[in-house]
Design a protein around this nucleic acid. Structure first.
Length: 398
DNA sequence: AATTCGGGGCC
DNA sequence: GGCCCAGAATT
């Protein structure tokens, strides 16, 4: 009976609180399932403040399911540039195309149908169904796991899938009749603005009276979450290749393979160097630039049939992904052409090796020429990962 | 169950 | 520097 009261209290109070305190967010001004969906995909692992400008630009450029379905993929990727997790963009467009074909352009409103769409997992399915259609489905994200772990004093490791599943069952029970959309948003809103990861603002919390974590004085110890392992360092040598003659003022860039990290984005050509000795990775000083320069020239030739003369180091850059850390040294290079006969073989071989390295099952097929000269105009059209945008900016090319 | 997928803001 | 963020797909 006490537990029931705690649950009813929680849902009732939270809903009241939300109606008074909810933030005015762009996607809350619409009830269009397509807009709700876009916002939820953008919000995966991404903060609200980061998403807002992207959301505006995206719906302005792709205002309808039809518009997004019919757009060139490159345009969609460009609109996503800087947001990260680029498979979200490609999956979203693939899913929207399916909605257009199979559902006549209407975002499906059943768990089975919407969950079958690319990029729509348990969270996004529940979020769209509840927010757009007010269906009583849970939408459990990191906020919800944190809030419920504290309120119900759950010590399970939220990094485990089984824990998320359990919290999902609990969250489903808590949904007040006919209020799924607001309740789910209320839960997330509380996590984002009050029940924050560090130093939660318990004194302003609408449910602090019956919060078990608070009553036990362990709100700061919850939720329990195992730490991710640190990213592995990789040294990389980058080629900054300037054009001559007709290509003066331009820089040579290549498109990444269609699978794996930063799939299909454009980048400055670069090669992975052997792991550094413990004490001299880039960021340190006098690493052996000679060896790096040799590797850079040899690997660009072997992998792409690209002939360059590295001139000297230009700048260093570092970029950390979730699982890899790139420690890069950029070398200014002179373009010396493309290798002929042996080059084409080497290039095909490299393409195969690359596809394999990227974990791709596909056998390459007819992919486009992956190199192109970029001036400012082209940069505005094609998507580059942030780390290369930074390098290009520092080099005065943006 | 563990990895692979970006990037930034905040303490 | 560490942590986490309105997670999903793949292995």
């Amino acid at each position: 009976m006490g537990a029931t009261n705690a649950k009813t209290f929680f849902s009732t109070r939270l809903l009241e609180w939300y109606r008074r305190h909810k933030r005015d967010l762009p996607w809350r001004r619409s009830r269009d399932p397509y807009y709700i969906w876009i916002s939820e995909v953008m919000l995966q692992q991404t903060r609200v403040e980061t998403v807002i400008p992207y959301f505006h630009r995206f719906v302005d450029r792709f205002p309808t399911v039809e518009a997004l379905a019919d757009a060139p993929e490159e345009d969609v990727l460009k609109a996503w540039e800087g947001l990260g997790y680029y498979s979200r963009a490609r999956n979203l467009q693939a899913a929207v195309r399916e909605v257009k074909e199979r559902y006549g352009g209407r975002v499906p409103d059943t768990p089975e149908a919407i969950s079958s769409l690319k990029g729509v997992g348990p969270y996004t399915a529940g979020a769209v169904l509840s927010i757009a259609y007010n269906k009583p489905e849970p939408a459990v994200d990191g906020n919800v796991m944190r809030v419920l772990s504290r309120y119900f004093l759950l010590r399970d490791d939220i990094a485990k899938p089984s824990t998320r599943a359990g919290i999902e069952r609990l969250a489903r029970e808590l949904i007040p009749e006919g209020e799924a959309g607001d309740f789910n948003q209320a839960l997330m809103e509380l996590g984002a603005t009050v029940c924050t990861p560090k130093s939660p603002h318990c004194l302003t919390c609408p449910v602090m009276d019956l919060c078990a974590g608070r009553l036990e004085g362990v709100e700061n110890e919850l939720p329990v979450k195992t730490k991710a392992k640190p990213p592995r360092p990789e040294r990389r040598a980058v080629a900054f290749i300037e054009g001559e003659g007709a290509e003066t003022g331009k820089v040579l860039a290549r498109q990444r393979p269609k699978d794996g990290l930063l799939a299909r984005m454009w980048e400055l050509p670069h090669v992975k160097l052997p792991d550094a000795a413990p004490e001299g990775a880039y960021g340190g000083e006098a690493d052996d630039d000679g060896a790096a320069i040799r590797m850079l020239r040899e690997r660009l030739l072997a992998e792409y049939g690209l002939v360059v003369e590295p001139l000297g180091p230009m700048m260093d850059a570092e970029h950390t992904f979730s699982h890899i850390q790139w420690r890069m040294r950029v070398f200014r290079c002179r373009f010396a052409g493309w290798a002929d006969k042996p080059g084409t073989e080497a290039r095909a071989e490299a393409a195969a090796a690359e596809a394999e390295a990227a974990g791709s099952a596909e056998s390459d097929g007819d992919r486009e020429e992956p190199f192109r000269w970029f001036g400012r105009r082209e940069m505005e059209q094609y998507a580059f990962p942030n780390v290369f945008l930074r390098i290009l900016k520092e080099a005065g090319r943006l």
